[in-house]
Design a binder for these strands. Sequence first.
DNA 1: GTCTATATTCCGATAGAC
DNA 2: GTCTATCGGAATATAGAC
Lengths: 200, 200
Amino acid sequence: MSTQEPLGAQERLVRSTQELLWERGYVGTSPKAILERAGVGQGSMYHHFSGKSELALAAIRRTAEELKQGAESCLGGPGTAYDRIAAYLLRERRVLRGCPIGRMTQDRDVVRSAELRQPLDELFGWLQGRIAEVLAEGQRRGELTAEPAPAAGAAAVAAVVQGGYVLARAADDPAPFDAAVQGVLALLAAQRTPGTRTTG
Amino acid sequence: MSTQEPLGAQERLVRSTQELLWERGYVGTSPKAILERAGVGQGSMYHHFSGKSELALAAIRRTAEELKQGAESCLGGPGTAYDRIAAYLLRERRVLRGCPIGRMTQDRDVVRSAELRQPLDELFGWLQGRIAEVLAEGQRRGELTAEPAPAAGAAAVAAVVQGGYVLARAADDPAPFDAAVQGVLALLAAQRTPGTRTTG
DNA sequence: GTCTATATTCCGATAGAC
DNA sequence: GTCTATCGGAATATAGAC
């Protein structure tokens, strides 16, 4: 349960920045827009943060942490390796909004700054490692065949999600995202060993 | 062989815009930067184009057409369905630069404009359709099993490429792109019927 | 067709009152 | 801590000479 006290200016600034970075990206987000959404004055922002980039860093770190928790709740759940990957892929998403962290990889100022890129690197590195663990465990338990190598399979699964967003936004339609997920799930389902095919 | 005459101002403007949209995106690209790279004055640009968005439209259309030709040269090549998909996926790419069209899907002004989004939609729609054709042909010829459905498999293949760029840029390293491609290729290779496994 | 000059608005940050 | 006032520069476009 979250506390219901009115939020402080600093917290409102971070949350507004999270939203705006998601909607408009780093270049497209101005301090002015952040202030207006947060409902605070300029002095307040420059008191708590040195400027736009420091505020963005706080927002990106927060968002990355939230995504990590969400992914772990699927990948760390019950069931076979296939079930857990499927839970992650089929998780409810507002597809047309895209991935708030994946989006940052298209922002020049973010990628060129070691500090701003670090949370992106950390999140996607963790994600691929976590999915690889699940795949490796499935292979150890004999649920899955030895192909593909866990790291490669994990990269493919993570890429399908990120690429699914791209295809969906290009079409202004979530359908390509869903199709891509179904495609990779069908491929993965075919790697299940006989006797473990409880679903799909 | 392309003609070697000095290029006109209009052509130089389009090419400069193509480069800058790739590097910086739509919001991050200013008319001033375009002019400087093209080596022309402001009056020249506003003579040939009504403004930034019309110039961007010309550049995006041009880039999409170029990508389409490049993809077709792989997907329309010789070999089995698997070979042609592999040729497309393993094609030489400057991974860290990302996809010049996929990038546009993260640009709010592009996606919100029906006119600017249209070439993106057209390209990715065509790409998925073309890959689906190749997969369907492989199934008809008995090279591939019936799973996944061609449209789903095609979406997954296209998504792996776009998502691979995202993962690679987050890591500032092409390796995740290559891993994702290897992953989906291993999954696809497992769908080949006995007797057609000439590679992989 | 192409150039330079100018206009208007926004960006990102600083100064200093309260 | 938070506010308003202000600054130097860039973004996008227009005006008008050549």
